[in-house]
Computed example of a mutant assay.
Amino acid sequence: MTLTIHLNGKAQAVAADPETPLLYVLRDELGLNGAKYGCGLGQCGACTVQLDGKAIFSCITPVGAVGDRAVRTVEGLGSLDHMSPLQQAFLDEQAAQCGYCIAGMLMRAQALLDVNPHPGEAEIRSHMQPNLCRCGTHMRILRAIRRVAGQSGKGAAA
């Protein structure tokens, strides 16, 4: 079946069963490898993308459920030549160790910053809680988000 999804600002035709997880369509059909397969159960966040600006687990979201809503992946945030402020902050804070979780972390963090450009520490931590980093770089990830949110880091747990 051919479906049309709105991906990173462009209409994209995909040939997929409507029950196919969005993650598989992104990676296998469209060649967008930013979102990763982690657990397949929506429990780790490695597959996080945005759907109409909200962070979702693409491993448990059927492509048929996307409808006319906008899908945004890490490939839609920026590029090596033109990084988004959040991507640059992740680089500056050396927030990636193995890098497996980073695309999901970026997408979840960007969803928060798009709604609230200056979230407080508790809001950042609460919002980021569903995404896991197996390497333990959570503190660097939080510093990167605070940097973009305009927080100096004073009073926040490093």
Rank of each mutant, 00 (worst) to 15 (best):
L3D: 08
Q50V: 02
V115Q: 15
D81H: 11
C44D: 06
S152W: 06
P21R: 10
Q151Y: 03
A65M: 13
G53M: 07
E19K: 15
P85R: 07
T2A: 14
G104V: 01
E121T: 08
E29P: 00
Q110G: 04
A156R: 10
A13R: 10
N131I: 01
L41V: 11
I60Q: 10
D81R: 11
A46I: 02
A11F: 07
E75H: 02
G67H: 05
T4W: 13
S152P: 01
G31M: 13
G120E: 12
R72S: 10
E93G: 05
R147S: 12
G38W: 06
Y37T: 00
G40A: 05
G76R: 09
V74Y: 03
M139Y: 12
S79W: 04
V74I: 12
G45K: 08
L77E: 03
S79E: 07
L113Y: 05
A103N: 09
L30N: 10
L32R: 09
Y24I: 07
P119T: 02
R140Y: 09
G45R: 06
G78Y: 03
G153Y: 11
D28N: 15
C101R: 10
A16S: 14
A122Q: 07
R147G: 09
D17Y: 13
G155R: 14
P62W: 15
R140D: 03
L77T: 00
N33H: 15
S58L: 09
L86M: 03
S152F: 10
P85D: 02
L142E: 14
F90Q: 03
R72N: 08
C135Q: 06
C135L: 11
A122C: 00
A16I: 08
G78W: 06
G136A: 12
G40I: 01
N33I: 10
G64P: 02
E29S: 15
C133H: 08
T4G: 13
L113G: 00
L86E: 01
R134V: 04
K36H: 10
P119D: 06
R125K: 13
A144G: 05
L51R: 07
A70K: 01
L30F: 13
R125A: 14
V63I: 14
E93A: 15
T73K: 13
T137N: 14
H127D: 11
Y24T: 04
T2F: 12
A122T: 01
K10T: 15
G150Y: 03
L3G: 11
A70M: 07
G64A: 11
F90K: 01
G120A: 13
A149R: 05
H118N: 13
R69N: 11
G45A: 14
A103S: 15
M105I: 08
I141E: 07
D81P: 00
C39H: 01
S79Q: 04
A65Q: 11
A109Q: 02
C59Q: 04
R143Y: 07
